[in-house]
Design a protein around this nucleic acid. Structure first.
Lengths: 192, 192
DNA sequence: GTATGAAAAGCTAACGGTTAGTGTTACGTT
DNA sequence: AACGTAACACTAACCGTTAGCTTTTCATAC
């Protein structure tokens, strides 16, 4: 159980980051579809196979930091007792994430994503992953006593609240409205 | 304004059906990933380009009849007045669709879908299409007076109720529980 | 009938993402 | 110093998909 001090890991992380940065730059400069994997690899000075050993797909280059999202959501409900109110915390979390997406620097990226069917589709499957993770955390924590179906439904609604709010005219108000709906839905799943 | 006499259309429909049937048979026999487009085209005795003129993608071969779903859902709420209760009708519709999916003959197909990431992903984007259509019908009909965000959220929940129920241990009970949640969520979106 | 226009189907060849196979280098460990 | 392995590289292909162009098949007007 040696503690990983790691020059290896540093180099690996650097390679990964260089690939991601190069890719995003090229995508923003020339458009996602206009840039091929072979170009990205060449510009980052790595082999195509190396690129694919760091990222599972071309789309994954764009959503480099999606694991954070998943952990933050799941972390917000982990280890809660069944009676505790967890939805306000989730709401705060979604609020923060929506505002993070509204950062001026992030706007061109989102425009690129919305313009590409492949990226939108990838984003959807990401959301499915996130909601399943949240559903699991829910079922193991504050959702004990509720049905698995109810946990999954609530988890999906929370994750999609983020997506819907991002596209709404007033994102903050949308988050609030959506969480009012979620609270109401959660309330009626209480066992008799 | 000539009435469509249609031997042409009959032949076209026949070709389309032959492709779909052949594809599904091969997929079930050998597995979705193990069968290539070129194989399907050869077995159906058509050119690859012909296949793609009938179906937009390989995945679309499996979800041949998804347009029905969309029309049935949207039709269940079209032209309703804002005060009318439309959710019971939607519930019945989802109920029927879930039971249709539970047909013994459909089981291997769903197993295949669940086993393939590509098919699951495609199913997701189909659902997004369906929920956007339902949201539009909702906003134009019984959802007048509610926010666009609320309509979209409810539409998504309805469409996903189908998906969640299909996977639940007791699909019928799941539909009922999910619609109880949806009713509650819809209730709190009423304007003040 | 035959000519004509158009839809449907076909063929070839390619493009772009992705992967298998096979080394080669650089690092951590012993 | 020697060894095992993780990271990387190169080639060559596979697969879904599309573009470009030709041929067949049908509907209709002459």
């Amino acid at each position: 159980m040696t503690v990983p001090t790691g020059r290896r890991e540093r180099k690996k992380a650097a390679t990964r980051q260089k690939i991601a940065d190069t890719a995003l730059r090229l995508f923003l400069e020339q458009g996602y579809d206009a840039v091929g994997i072979r170009e990205v690899a060449a510009a980052a000075d790595v082999a195509v196979t190396t690129l694919f050993s760091h990222f599972a797909s071309k789309e994954a280059l764009v959503f480099e930091r999606d694991a954070d999202f998943e952990h933050r959501l799941a972390g917000a409900v982990a280890g809660r007792a069944p009676a505790e109110p967890f939805l306000p915390d989730l709401r705060r979390e979604v609020h923060a994430l929506v505002q993070h997406c509204a950062t001026p620097g992030a706007a061109p990226v989102w425009r690129m994503i919305d313009a590409s069917p492949a990226l939108r589709s990838y984003e959807e499957s990401m959301r499915l992953r996130h909601s399943e993770a949240l559903a699991a955390a829910l079922a193991a924590g504050p959702g004990r006593g509720r049905s698995a179906t109810a946990c999954r439904a609530i988890a999906r609604s929370v994750v999609e609240a983020h997506a819907l709010a991002r596209q709404a005219a007033d994102p903050d108000a949308a988050v609030n409205e959506l969480f009012r709906m979620i609270e109401a839905a959660w309330a009626v799943t209480a066992p008799a």
